[in-house]
Design a protein around this nucleic acid. Structure first.
Length: 341
DNA sequence: GTTCCACAGGAAAATATGGAGG
DNA sequence: CCTCCATATTTTCCTGTGGAAC
């Protein structure tokens, strides 16, 4: 059934990237000066989730390392390392310069000094989910260091630049912007087809079924590959020699549920109670949510905190907010919308 | 229109948490 | 074990917005 599970895993970087030639070339050309030992511009990669931003960054940097001897790459997930300190620390850690850094005795600017003094190989820094940084000015600080090339990945450009000084923004205007769009169904089909060719035995899944997956994934390659992986592992577990329509339907829901579960797991118990209230009692105004919540837990948080919870969950796409002021109501996002399978 | 009030969400102070070093 | 200090979360205080009742 499964020939090579690696190619179905999230984060796998394929030998050849399908349908992203223009973007790959664009990004490569931005990094090109590095091959001559010159500083490269900052690249900004934007687009919705599952459009291959992380994938082509890794692909291009890996290819660069094949070509050039003295190039290193470091990857920072800004969603997990969202403070200035953590981001810089992560980079220093990767290039092996953290030896005597202690949180106490190290003033924050010392980190940037260390990077500045770094005289090892040129390094490409990939800042993934950079729009999650609480202080994006760290991007500008890195931008000004010639020995580092920055690839900055974000969903939307506006969000990345929203809360920053205009002065700093203009300094980044010169950087190259690579925009990525959602995949078309045919393109997703090609991606799935390539993965199943390497990852699965022949004849396990039909083209028609791959097309169904592409359709259900609505342009999101990560989701599509997740569905394929889920279907393949269910089929393998249950000893089928091919993927059935039932397995496929279930896998589609499974993959979406997994994504949702992941964000649900990151909620604190208090946040979880708030979520459950909205889930069980339909559209509700924040005041109503708070009073129900207060009745349900010992030691309730204040209204303000619950408002923060609600807006956070709306960002995570767990809840939907309607209305801008007194009329605001929160409800579950209808996950049924994108699954006509 | 005017007033009122629930809400959004920023800022800063207060409090809880966690991890290193004693 | 405890203490200390950076970090994380929560509360307090706040200003601005816009819908609803008058």
């Amino acid at each position: 059934m499964i020939r090579d599970a690696r190619v179905l895993r999230a984060g796998f970087v394929p030998q050849e990237v399908e349908h992203r030639d223009a973007e790959v070339n664009h990004l490569s050309s931005v990094l090109e000066p590095i091959t001559n030992g010159e500083p490269a511009d900052t690249a900004i990669l934007t687009g919705p989730s599952g459009t291959g931003k992380t994938c082509i960054s890794r692909f291009v940097t890996e290819r660069l390392r094949e070509e050039v001897l003295d190039v290193e790459t470091t990857y920072v997930n800004c969603w997990r390392n969202y403070t200035r300190f953590r981001t810089l620390y992560q980079i220093l850690d990767d290039i092996g310069k953290t030896i005597d850094i202690h949180r106490q005795s190290t003033p924050h600017d010392e980190l940037i000094d260390r990077l500045q003094q770094y005289d090892g190989s040129r390094t490409v820094v990939i800042l993934d989910e950079a729009d999650q940084l609480e202080d994006p000015s760290v991007i500008y600080d890195l931008h000004s260091l010639p020995q580092f090339a920055i690839i900055c990945i974000a969903n939307k450009e506006e969000e990345l630049f929203s809360q920053v000084d205009d002065r700093l923004v203009s300094r980044l205007r010169s950087s190259e912007h690579v925009r990525m769009d959602k995949y078309h169904n045919e393109q997703l089909f090609d991606i799935l087809s390539a993965r199943s060719k390497w990852g699965l035995e022949n004849g396990v899944i039909t083209d028609d079924q791959l097309y169904q997956i592409a359709d259900a994934a609505a342009g999101d390659a990560r989701l599509a590959i997740g569905m394929l992986r889920s279907a393949a592992s269910t089929a393998a577990r249950e000893n089928h020699d091919r993927i059935t329509t039932e397995i496929l339907t279930e896998a589609a829901e499974d993959a979406k549920a997994q994504i949702k579960q992941k964000s649900l797991d990151s909620l604190t118990p208090h946040q979880r109670v708030v979520y459950d209230i909205v889930r069980d009692h339909g559209p509700l105004a924040p005041g109503e949510i708070h009073s129900r919540y207060t009745a349900e837990v010992d030691d309730p948080r204040t209204k303000r905190t619950v408002r923060t919870y609600l807006s956070k969950m709306a960002q995570y796409n767990l809840l939907e907010a309607e209305g801008t002021s007194r009329d605001r109501e929160y409800s579950l996002v209808d996950s049924a919308a994108a699954s006509p399978m």
